[in-house]
C-alpha cells in the first residue's frame, strides 16, 4: 500500500502501467501479492543478522530488477523508518544486558542494540519488497487481484469504492476550500477558524452521505441486488512460475543461513 503514502499525483512508476519495463511489472498481480506475503512472513521470522542482511540485499536486488526510480523509492522507505526511529533509538537503553556505553547516566546494552538492528533490517527488507511487488500495482488491479485471491468480497468492494470516490471527495474538499480562500479566509488559531473548519468538515460529510444515497439509487436503477461482479481474470505464465520458484528458493536459502549463523 505504498501508494497511500505517495505525495505526488502518481504512484511509483506511474502506478506500474505498461510503461514499467522491469521484471516485476509483467508478473501476475496475484503472484506478486502472495510473494510479498510469503517473503514478509519469512523475513519477520528470521533473527540472525547474517540472514537479515542477506534479506535486505535480496530486497535491494528486487528493487534493481523492477527498475523503479531509486531515489524516490528509498526516500519512501526512509519515511517508514521515521515512524520507527524513536523505538529503535530507545531500544538499547530499555533492554537490559551488557553495557556498550552510557549516555546521561543511561546504559545502552549490546542486546538492545542487536534487537534494534534486527528490527530495522527486518522492517526495511519487508517494506522494500512490498513496495516493489505490491506498491507498483495499479490500485484497481490490486483490488481485482485480491478478489481473485478470494479475499472477502465486502472488503474488496470497500477498497474499490474507496479508490473510486476518494478523488471525488478530495475535489469536493478542494472546491470548498478554494471558495473559502476566495472570500478571504486565512486559517489561524482562533475560534472563527476552528468553527469554519468545522463547517467545512460537516459539509463534506453531508455531501458524502448524500452522494452515497444517490449512488445507491443509481445502483438500484440498474437492478442492484446485493452482488457486484468483478470481471477481470488473470492467467499465470511461465514467468510467474519461475518467479514464484525463485522466491521460494530464496526464502529457503534465508532459513538455511539462519540455521548456519543463528
Amino acid at each position: 500500500m505504498a501508494h497511500v503514502l505517495s505525495q505526488g499525483p502518481e504512484g511509483l512508476a506511474g502506478h506500474g502501467g505498461p510503461s514499467g519495463a522491469g521484471w516485476i511489472v509483467p508478473l501476475d498481480p496475484r503472484v506478486r501479492i502472495l510473494g510479498a506475503c510469503v517473503y514478509g512472513i519469512a523475513v519477520a521470522a528470521l533473527s540472525g543478522l547474517v540472514a537479515l542482511s542477506v534479506a535486505l540485499a535480496l530486497s535491494l536486488g528486487l528493487l534493481a530488477l523492477s527498475r523503479l526510480p531509486l531515489r524516490p523509492t528509498l526516500r519512501r522507505m526512509a519515511m517508514m523508518d521515521g515512524f520507527i526511529f524513536f523505538m529503535l533509538a530507545l531500544l538499547p537503553f530499555t533492554v537490559p544486558g551488557d553495557p556498550v556505553f552510557t549516555l546521561w547516566g543511561f546504559a545502552a546494552s549490546w542486546q538492545g542494540l542487536g534487537q534494534a538492528v534486527e528490527i530495522a533490517l527486518t522492517a526495511n527488507a519487508v517494506i522494500l519488497a512490498l513496495m516493489v511487488l505490491v506498491g507498483t500495482l495499479e490500485p484497481v488491479t490490486l483490488g481485482h487481484a485480491l478478489y481473485r485471491l478470494r479475499c472477502p468480497e465486502r472488503l474488496v468492494h470497500l477498497l474499490m469504492f474507496t479508490l473510486r470516490y476518494i478523488e471525488v471527495l478530495r475535489e469536493e474538499y478542494l472546491r470548498l476550500r478554494a471558495a473559502m480562500k476566495l472570500r478571504g479566509f486565512r486559517p489561524g488559531s482562533n475560534w472563527h477558524s476552528y468553527r469554519s473548519f468545522g463547517y467545512l468538515l460537516g459539509m463534506i460529510l453531508v455531501r458524502a452521505i448524500e452522494r452515497s444515497e444517490r449512488i445507491l439509487e443509481a445502483m438500484k436503477c440498474r437492478g442492484f441486488s446485493g452482488r457486484i461482479v468483478l470481471l477481470r481474470e488473470f492467467a499465470l505464465s511461465r514467468r510467474d512460475w519461475v518467479f514464484g520458484a525463485a522466491l521460494l528458493g530464496a526464502v529457503a536459502g534465508l532459513f538455511v543461513l539462519e540455521r548456519t549463523w543463528p
Binding site: 483490488g143 481485482h144 479508490l163 473510486r164 452522494r211 444517490r214 449512488i215 461482479v229 470481471l231
Partner: peptide, 13 residues
C-alpha cells in the same frame, strides 16, 4: 452527476 452513476472500477465492469 456522472460520478453518482459510475461506481465500478473499470468501464467494462
Amino acid at each position: 452527476d456522472a460520478d453518482d452513476q459510475l461506481f465500478c472500477p473499470t468501464v467494462a465492469e
